[in-house]
Amino acid sequence: MTALTKSEMAERLFEELGLNKREAKEIVELFFEEIRACLEGNEQVKLSGFGNFDLRDKSQRPGRNPKTGEEIPISARRVVTFRPGQKLKARVEEYVGTDPQ
């Protein structure tokens, strides 16, 4: 099965809400851009019914170059984690797939 992309999301806004194609495309872009901008500012994003995008600060830890085996420290970083909401988890649990992704 092919993946859902921004263009299909815009297409649905055009079909279901009657937004013109340019508006639909712009809203989809803004949707993802505003979430990114918020996370960049170290603020959590909570989308009820879907899930939360949280931020976690990781301290530096030892790592290795898997090719050469050479030890290199993995620098301190901030990472985004997604915690699906109850509603989304329940909808996905019902999926009985034959092809685990």
Partner: peptide, 15 residues
């Protein structure tokens, strides 16, 4: 609509 579209996709196993 965008969030519902995304949830629907995941509910049928679509990436």
């Amino acid at each position: 609509t965008i969030l519902e579209h995304m949830s629907q996709a995941l509910a049928v196993g679509e990436r």
